[in-house]
Design a protein around this nucleic acid. Sequence first.
RNA 1: CGGGGUGUAGCGCAGUUGGUAGCGCGCUUGGUUCGGGACCAAGAGGUCGUGGGUUCAAAUCCCGUCACUCCGACCA
Length: 482
Amino acid sequence: MAETMENKDKKFVKEIADINDNFAQWYTDVVLKTELVDYGPVKGTMVIRPYGYAVWENIQREMDARFKAIGVKNAYFPLLIPMSFFTKEAEHVEGFAPEVAVVTHAGGAKLEEPLAIRPTSETIIGTMYAKWIQSYRDLPVLINQWCNVMRWEKTTRPFLRTSEFLWQEGHTVHATAEEAMEETMLMLAEYKKFAEEVLAIPVLCGKKTEKEKFAGAEATFGMEAMMIDGKSLQAGTSHYFGQNFSKAFEIKYLDKDGTLKYGYTSSWGTSTRMIGAVIMAHGDERGLVFPPKIAPVQVIIVPVAAHKGGVNEKCAELSEKLKAAGVRVETDDRDMSPGRKFNEWEMKGVPVRIEIGPRDIENGVCAICRRDTFGKAEVPLDRAIEKIKELLSEIQANMLEKSRARRDKKIVEAESLDGILKGVEGQNFVKAGWCGCRECEDKVKETAQATARIMCDEEGVPERCAICGKPAKHKVIFARAY
RNA sequence: CGGGGUGUAGCGCAGUUGGUAGCGCGCUUGGUUCGGGACCAAGAGGUCGUGGGUUCAAAUCCCGUCACUCCGACCA
């Protein structure tokens, strides 16, 4: 009996690759088998299926509410951008040129000027801002758009890197450098809060190196999340542009003192990549684990022996009560064995499962199982609603704690190149001193296949560069990255 | 763009020295079941990625080609 169970478990685990053995394969399996996404007909594109899209909708709703609360307004700008717009900012065009997809024909004829499919919207939004902004009274401008963008990447992976992806991009203009920088840091902080409170992923924030910063930015700040395999994933960025874009696009305003000045701009973005981050930060050998706040289904009710009287009625009753309490609940009334349903919903990452059978009804209880710890408890039916609401927030909190504990164990310090190599080979984030030169950064890339993720100077800069031994200017987190 | 791997039913695969296309899961129908992947019976489902060649005969041998996938360089 025990042996059969074990075999069945093995068979189940085999459906999705071994998480420790082949993480990349596990990831691909899990996003396909849980019906989050499918591959699109054009290589590098993904079809986001309803179950996956629901996650994105939840992310959008939660994040949008936070934007609104700090005065950001939503707008929409065109998909197609005249190519000439890109050439206005030298670094920007150089950075994006290789991955821009271009429309050359329309209406059955060759276009006078080719049109870029937006890889990001600084250029077109900058152009419009130049028209809209006249006076210091028009500032600040805080606009966000939810849209798709396209970047022709060489290798792709669902959610993490696809040719087309969904994101939000915020674009702001300010009167002064201080204000623009303040906005840049504010949004980074908002992203960090969002990642931790909603996605239950602890993140490290900091400034990007010159090599890693956004094309055209004066400074880029990012948040980095650690995946189960110790690799880093950039989950959001916030850029300070200074006057680079305002000068290129003539974003000028008349100040109180009567002089014409260039504005200072910032932009910030997060994408469907966050869904990938959630999968890779919380998943386990049984599949997905969604934090309750973004789970498409928060509670799945599985009737047991539904043909017996009263079971379906009890399930419907509980479901209605949960819905009324604002819980995203579904009942799985398919005609198949319950064990099978348990496994399917576990793979799909539903945080809470409720089992109701004749025995429970007799005793006036239901069985409640949580996905994060596999804990199982019997709860009186009349107290089920409050218990489940409690449990959902407990799971949300526990998931953050758990991933924070896992991550913190995997942050190490190194004082040599060899130390960095050993650190990343052990699937760690490695903190090390850095002199600030590009050569040392490249050397780490070559020998350890790791990149400088962010700088965290506020923690105190080590005395010497771990690579060349010269005096260090920064404290950097090195890691392998997605 | 370099290096490896795979293309046979919806999914996972087998197919020996060339000789009528197979298995498991899933799917359909009927019945018995139902507290961790149920069982019995009867079914449906394939131009073997694709083009050419060798042969009486090719999933199988030869040449080309395409797609997918994993690992590197580029990137949210």
